[in-house]
Design a protein around this nucleic acid. Structure first.
Lengths: 353, 353
DNA sequence: CGCTTTTGCACAATCGATGGTGCAATCAAT
DNA sequence: ATTGATTGCACCATCGATTGTGCAAAAGCG
C-alpha cells in the first residue's frame, strides 16, 4: 500500500471504501461499535481497511468534537536541571501509561509567561494540568477553573487547588542538622558559620529558611539574620553573592546551605575562579539532588525530593471526583555525600544494540 | 466581568454580542480584517468585546480548519540529563520567539515508542518536527513525509532528511588527545591504558569510536580492540562494565573516554562503591558537558556540544523551501576541568522578588 | 401470517474557526 | 440620473470525528 502522496486517510475515505457510513466507520475505529450494534464482520472489514490505508484519527477533529484532547500538561519553571528534568521524565511515563499524551512546557518562572503558556494549553483543550514550581499558582488556577480544567500544584503550593509538595521545612531541618553534624567533626560550630544562599520569595524558600533557622537556633543557639542570603533562582546572582561574601570575609562560610541545584551552579562558577584551598574544609548542603553534585571534592549533602511519590500522589488526587484543596507534604530524603541514586532513566529498558 | 461558569466564549458568542457575523468576528480576531475590508470601528468594537469576555481562540478548531496547529515538536530520547534538558530549554525559547508553541516529548530511545509518539504528534497536526537522538530517524522520516510534515534530524543523522549533528569524530579526537596530554604529565602513556566506555550501535558512537581510535593510534601508535567497551546508554550497564574491568585488572584504566553523561553516571555508581584511592590518578573525558561533572575530584575533560548553534542551524534549514538532504557538522568545544559554563538558563531574566 | 423485538446501520447536527464568494449600500464620475 | 467602482460585511461550505435519533430489514413469537 503506497502512502498516497500527501493527505491522510479520513473516516470519509474509509466510508467510501467500505461502503459504510462515516458514523459506522467512526464507531468501529474508536471502539464504541459494540455499543452501537455494528456487526462483527463489518467492524473487521473496516479495521482491515483502516490498517491498509494507515488510518490514524485526526486528534484535533476529535478534540474539537469532544472538547477534550487527550493531552495532559506539565508546566515547569525550567527544563535544564536534574530536578525538573527528572520530574518531566517521570511525568511522561505516568501519563503514557494512562494512554494519554504528555506535554511538558516551561515558563521560566515568569508569571506572565506562565499564564500565557497555560492559556495556550487551554486553547488546545488539554484535559489536565500539573503545575510545577509556578510563581503564581492561584492565577493559573483561575484560568483553569474558568476553562473547567482539572489541575494540581506540585512543588509550590497554591491556595485554591490541591497541592503536593516536598516537606521543605523538614527537609531543610534534616539538611541543616546534617551539615552541623558534619562540621562538628572538625571543631565546634558557631551559628554564624553556616549560611543559606539562594531562593526567593516563594513558599518553598520560606519553609526552607524556616527549617534552616529552627535547626540553627536549636542546635547552635542562634539564627543570625545575616546568614540568610536570598539570591533568586539564578546561578549568576548566586555566584555574585559568594564572591561578595568571599571579598568581605576572606573565605567562604564553613557550612553552606544552598537552596537549589540552580544556586549550586553559582557556587560552581565561584569555584572555577578560586583555587582548591578556598573550599578545602567546607561542607555543602544542597536542597535538590544531582548525581554529579554528590561527588564534588568536598562533602556535599543533598536533599532528594521524592518526585515519584509526589507525582503518584498528584495523579491519585487527579482521579478523585472532587479533591479537597489541601497541601500534601511528601517527605524528602537526605542523601549522603558520594551517593549515586538511581533515577527515572533506570526504568527504561535498554534496547538490544 | 465574571468568568461565566464553564464555557469559553467563541466567535459565535461575540457575533451575537456585536451584531456582526461570525466570519467578521473571526477576521477581526485573527488579524486578517484589513484584507477583508472590515471597518476600523467594527474591528475595535469586536476587539473590545473579545477582551471583556476573555475570548481566546479554540486552537483545535483553528488547527482542524487550517490543518496546521502552531505546534512545533521536539522528540528527545530522554529528558533527564543536562544535554537534552538544555536542548529542550533552548528549543522552547526559539520556538516561542517564532510565535509557535513548543512541544517536547521523549521516546526512551525505543524505535517503536518513537514512531508511536510521532504518530500522535502528527495526529495533532504539528507543523514541524525536530528529531533529536532518534534511534530510527528514517522510520520517522517516512511518517513525517507521508503526513507532509517538515522535519529535521539533530544529534543523530538520518539518510532521508537533513541533519544537524555534532562533529563527533573531531570532538572525540580532541577529547582523546586532551586525555593523552593530561596523562603524559604523570608519565608515558601506553595505548592500552585508555579505554572508551559507553555508546552503542548508533552513528554518534561510531564516529566517536573512530575519532578515539584514530587519536589513540596516531598519538600512541596503536588502538587495541579491547579498549572499546560499548555498554549501551544505561548507567547500570556502564557501572557493570567498570566493575568488571576493576575486578579483572585491580584498577581502573588511567584514561577513561566516556561516551555520554549517561554513561558517566555509571562511573559515579562505581565510585560510590570504591574509596578515593581507586581513582586518584585517573583522567576522565566525557562526551557531553555537565557543570557538576566538571568539578569532580579528578580531572574531567568534557565536550560541550554546541546546542545553540545546532538548533540555530536546524531552524535555519527549516525555513528553506526545499532543504537538501545533507549532514551539517557543528564543531563542539573542549571544556577543561573545573569549568562552569553558562547555559540557557542564563538567558532567563530574573523576576523581581 | 401478522405483530413485536432485535439487529444493523444511515442521517444529520455539532464542535469553533476560516475564507471564497456574493451582494447591498455608498460614493464618484459622466 | 445612470453607470461603475469601492466599501463593508454576511453567507455558507469546510476541516474530521462524534453521537442522538430514526428507520428498514431480519428474527422471534403465538
Amino acid at each position: 500500500m503506497r502512502h498516497q502522496g500527501k493527505k491522510k486517510a479520513t473516516i470519509y475515505d474509509l466510508s467510501v471504501l467500505s461502503g459504510c457510513s462515516p458514523s459506522t466507520v467512526s464507531a468501529v475505529l474508536n471502539g464504541t461499535w459494540r455499543k452501537r450494534r455494528i456487526k462483527q464482520s463489518t467492524a473487521e472489514l473496516i479495521q482491515r481497511l483502516a490498517e491498509q490505508h494507515r488510518y490514524t484519527a485526526n486528534l484535533q477533529a476529535r478534540g474539537l468534537r469532544n472538547s477534550r484532547s487527550g493531552l495532559v500538561g506539565l508546566l515547569l519553571p525550567v527544563h535544564d536541571n536534574r530536578y525538573f528534568s527528572s520530574m518531566a521524565q517521570t511525568f511522561e511515563a505516568e501519563v503514557r501509561s494512562h494512554g494519554k499524551c504528555p506535554i511538558v512546557v516551561s515558563a521560566c518562572r515568569d508569571p506572565r509567561e506562565e499564564r500565557a503558556t497555560v492559556e495556550t494549553l487551554i486553547s488546545y483543550s488539554i484535559d489536565e494540568l500539573f503545575i510545577a514550581g509556578a510563581t503564581d499558582p492561584d492565577g493559573i488556577h483561575l484560568l483553569c477553573e474558568a476553562a473547567g480544567i482539572r489541575h494540581i500544584n506540585i512543588d509550590l503550593p497554591g491556595t485554591k487547588a490541591p497541592s503536593v509538595i516536598s516537606d521543605n521545612y523538614e527537609g531543610a531541618r534534616m539538611l541543616t542538622e546534617a551539615i552541623i553534624q558534619r562540621l562538628s567533626a572538625t571543631g565546634p560550630v558557631k551559628p554564624d558559620q553556616i549560611y543559606l544562599f539562594g531562593g526567593r520569595n516563594d513558599h518553598a524558600s520560606h519553609e526552607r529558611i524556616r527549617g534552616f533557622r529552627d535547626a540553627q537556633k536549636q542546635r547552635l543557639g542562634a539564627d543570625p539574620d545575616q546568614c540568610i542570603q536570598p539570591t533568586g533562582y539564578s546561578p549568576d546572582m548566586s555566584q555574585k553573592a559568594f564572591e561578595a561574601f568571599y571579598e568581605r570575609e576572606g573565605r567562604l562560610p564553613r557550612g553552606l546551605f544552598i537552596n537549589s541545584s540552580i544556586n549550586f551552579e553559582g557556587l560552581l562558577r565561584f569555584l572555577a575562579q578560586h583555587p582548591h584551598e578556598t573550599f578545602a574544609d567546607i561542607v555543602v548542603g544542597c536542597y535538590d539532588y544531582d548525581p554529579f553534585g554528590s561527588f564534588l571534592p568536598f562533602p556535599v549533602l543533598m536533599i532528594r525530593q521524592d518526585i515519584e511519590r509526589m507525582l503518584a500522589k498528584a495523579f491519585e488526587i487527579m482521579e478523585e471526583p472532587r479533591p479537597a484543596v489541601e497541601i500534601h507534604l511528601i517527605r524528602p530524603e537526605l542523601v549522603q555525600p558520594r551517593t549515586a541514586l538511581t533515577g527515572p532513566l533506570d526504568l527504561i529498558r535498554e534496547i538490544d544494540v
